[in-house]
Design a protein around this nucleic acid. Structure first.
Lengths: 132, 132
DNA sequence: GCTATTAGTTTCCTTGAGGAAACCGGTTTC
DNA sequence: GAAACCGGTTTCCTCAAGGAAACTAATAGC
């Protein structure tokens, strides 16, 4: 009776082809992939720390990434290393030290991190202005 | 004896001033803010769906966001609405329908989502090429 | 011998994210 | 009156994320 209702409405909005639709689904998957790699409370903060402050040792990161504990830091660093985003280098110093650094591949995340950081900075301003 | 060791090494790398350091910490916080808003398994996928496919109803989203359940979808939509990223509009149709749309403020996330999606697409290619 | 450093690991615990399935109230169709 | 569609909510459950604190092992200084 009412065909404005469209009980089995097409998922793609008007004017979108099926191939458009497939491409959009592909994008949604890509977004999910990235969030899986960067998910959790700490990964982005660790990457941002290494990216903005340069190489750091375990204890540096423990002090820089506010609130993280040794166990979590250790685990997150292993994850990031497994994803080839950072390297772990043991240095032959007397109290042994370990250097963590971003890989060239990890550096390709710079645009992602920068975009996120810029939006975040603006978001803070928006909230402060009374928005939200 | 060995001053290369630097037991209480400065956190900022050589050449960085204290004000640099404060700015970098500010960036790390901004990154954390954004990840809090977008964290979880579904938020980015929901935003990406609305952004790339346009307004959708509850059932559209349930079908589009692969694997999500009604409870999670409902809760995530409430979160996104609370953060003023989407709007919820009840339409006076016969079987009641609800339209979800991205707000102008939510649209400012487009650059973030696009950057994430592009990196993700490239990441897939990298992995396919045998990398990892 | 005692303490401090570095870089973790181990154990135990709590909280919350997320999922499956049933249910609900309203409306339309047959 | 039964079945189906819409947009959820409620209940119950599990598993993983995350945290605190103790512990390890090696070395160095006092």
């Amino acid at each position: 009776m009412n065909d404005v209702l469209s009980p089995v409405r097409e998922i793609a909005p008007a004017g979108h082809t099926e191939s458009d639709c497939r491409e959009q689904n592909h994008k949604i998957l890509a977004a999910r992939d990235v969030m899986e790699i960067l998910s959790g409370k700490w990964k982005i903060q660790i990457i941002a720390a290494l990216m903005f402050k340069g190489n750091m040792r375990f204890m540096d990161l423990l002090r820089t990434v506010d609130g993280i504990g040794a166990k979590m830091l250790s685990k997150e660093l292993q994850d990031l290393e497994a994803n080839r985003l950072i390297t772990r280098t043991v240095l032959p110093t007397k109290p042994i030290t370990v250097d963590y650094a971003i890989t060239p591949y990890g550096k390709t995340l710079r645009s992602v991190i920068n975009t996120i950081v810029n939006w975040g900075i603006n978001h803070r301003k928006t909230i402060m202005r009374g928005g939200d």
